[in-house]
Design a protein around this nucleic acid. Structure first.
Lengths: 107, 107
DNA sequence: ATTTTATTCAACCATATAGTTGAATAAAGA
DNA sequence: TCTTTATTCAACTATATGGTTGAATAAAAT
């Protein structure tokens, strides 16, 4: 469903953000992704599943090995919410400043 | 410490994002924030504390009542990470396209 | 001085999360 | 065929999260 809850929840973990960073060099196998981490392969496999479920990763199976890659579109729900919220506040602050300027010229 | 873990974790909950949206009209008391939610005042008070701890809200005390307001700067760690990741991929995709175009002109 | 109002603190509960280990599955290599 | 390799599944543990209720605190109103 690509929900914003899932997206932000998935990103709120340093191991998972690190996994995304690792995939900048291109698709990788589960074991490759796991290798640099100080935790079991199984733990990493679970993190991968969370990211996949959030729409941030896609999996390509080739025989027994699974290749994961980052799916940039998965960031959209989170990016959109943050940008919308920022924009709303930029407008609020602009309005505030405009009001101050108007007040100044009324003197 | 304004960590990105805390920021994203705080945003990954619909009630908390709703609280931020509510504060668009300006600062509000804890009870005002709680009023439209289908949960106890205490639950909302906890959510407020999570947002505050993540640097997304600031609290101004006036006697017994606490006024909360949104702190747009609190979004920066999350926004920055997302934008940086997006940018990295935009470059990757651009490079890919450039390679394809170069390949095409070699025919 | 007493009561009401605004809010937090504390204890508790249910469920989710992040990790573990060990077994299961299934493809590849000997 | 037998063994190794790549990965998931299942069961379990510890801690975190999101909610509850009831008591504590402290300021405001009567």
């Amino acid at each position: 469903m690509l929900s914003i809850d899932k997206t932000l929840g998935a990103l709120a973990d340093p191991t998972r953000r690190e996994i995304i960073a690792q995939l900048n060099v291109g698709e990788q196998r589960v074991s490759d992704i796991a290798e640099p981490h100080q935790m079991s392969l199984n733990a990493v496999s679970k993190h991968i599943k969370v990211l996949e479920d959030a729409g941030l990763l896609i999996r390509r199976r080739e025989g027994r090995t699974h290749y994961l890659s980052f799916r940039p579109d998965g960031l959209e729900p989170a990016a959109e919410w943050i940008e919308r919220t920022r924009a709303m506040w930029a407008r609020r602050l602009d309005a505030l400043e405009a009001a101050l300027v108007a007040d100044e010229s009324e003197k």
